[in-house]
Simulated assay, not measured.
Amino acid sequence: MDMKLEVIVVPVSDVDRAKLFYLDRMGFRLDADFRVRAGYRVVQVTPPGSECSIIFGDGLTPTAPGTYLGLHLIVTDIEAARRELTDRGVEVSGPFRDITGAFHHPGTAERVPGLHPDRASYGSFASFQDPDGNQWFLQEVTQRAPGR
């Protein structure tokens, strides 16, 4: 049986501010904005080329805004993606890799500035935050690992 991750609920404090960020700054597509009733609103947006969307709104999750650390957007050219987001007004870190070369540590721990020396898939990252402080990573993948 196939199982596909299709939606992630991201906690935000101000729905309209988050909507502007994800649409105008990030270039995500608006899929839905349902104002069901006072205190219950559902906004769904999707990154360009993604099959997985994010939902944020009012009355959706007890999770505190700004507590998501480690959401990933996969890109084929991290430098181009970083430039595009920076041009849109998003503050993106410079490219980095983790000292272990395996993934990355939380926050900014054990970062080595610069791209992976061989520009290996899965090895280069950049990070940014949404207006609430939810942390996102860009991860460069130019060739998928077998089976992915």
Score class of each variant (00 low, 15 high):
Arg83Ile: 12
Val10Tyr: 00
Val92Gln: 10
Pro48Ser: 07
Gly70Thr: 06
Val141Cys: 06
Leu5Arg: 09
Arg82Asn: 12
Thr100Cys: 13
Val90Asp: 04
Glu91His: 05
Gln143Ile: 09
Lys4Thr: 13
Gly66Lys: 02
Asn134Glu: 09
Val10Thr: 08
Lys4Pro: 06
Val15Asp: 07
Asp33Lys: 01
Asp24Tyr: 02
Leu138Gly: 05
Phe56Thr: 00
Glu140Ala: 05
Thr63Gly: 03
Gly27Tyr: 04
Gly101Ile: 08
Pro48Trp: 09
Glu91Asp: 14
Ser50Met: 05
Gly133Phe: 03
Asp77Tyr: 04
Gly39Ala: 07
Glu84Phe: 01
His72Tyr: 09
Phe28Leu: 04
Val15Leu: 04
Met1Val: 13
Ala64Gly: 01
Phe96Ser: 10
Gln135Gly: 09
Gly101Arg: 10
Asp24Ala: 11
Ala120Ser: 12
Phe21Lys: 03
Val90Phe: 03
Thr67Ala: 09
His105Asn: 14
Asp118Gly: 09
Gly123Leu: 01
Ser121Thr: 15
Pro106Asn: 05
Gly70Glu: 07
Pro146Asp: 09
Gly59Phe: 02
Asp14Ala: 13
Tyr40Pro: 02
Gly70Tyr: 10
Glu110Ile: 02
Ser124His: 06
Phe56Met: 00
Glu84Pro: 02
Asp14Asn: 15
Phe96Arg: 03
Arg29Cys: 02
Ile54Thr: 05
His104Glu: 11
Pro146Asn: 07
Asp58Trp: 07
Phe128Gln: 06
Pro48Phe: 01
Gly114Trp: 05
Glu79Asn: 12
Arg82Pro: 15
Val7His: 07
His104Val: 15
Ser53Asn: 06
Ala120Glu: 14
Asp2Cys: 10
Asp77Thr: 12
His72Thr: 10
Leu71Ile: 06
Thr61Leu: 03
Asp16Cys: 08
Arg35Pro: 08
Pro146Met: 08
Pro146Tyr: 04
Asp16Thr: 12
Gly70Asn: 06
Gly101Leu: 06
His105Glu: 15
Pro47His: 00
Asp14Val: 05
Gly27Lys: 13
Tyr40Asp: 06
Glu110Gly: 02
Tyr68Leu: 10
Ile74Glu: 13
Ala145Ser: 04
Tyr122Ala: 13
Phe28Pro: 06
Gly57Lys: 08
Ile55Gly: 01
Arg17Leu: 10
Thr100Leu: 11
Leu20Gln: 14
Arg29Met: 05
His116Pro: 14
Pro65Thr: 11
Pro106Gln: 01
Pro47Gly: 05
Gly101Tyr: 02
Pro65Ile: 04
Met26Ser: 00
Gly57Cys: 12
Val9Thr: 14
Gly27Val: 09
Val10Lys: 00
Gly70Lys: 09
Met3Trp: 10
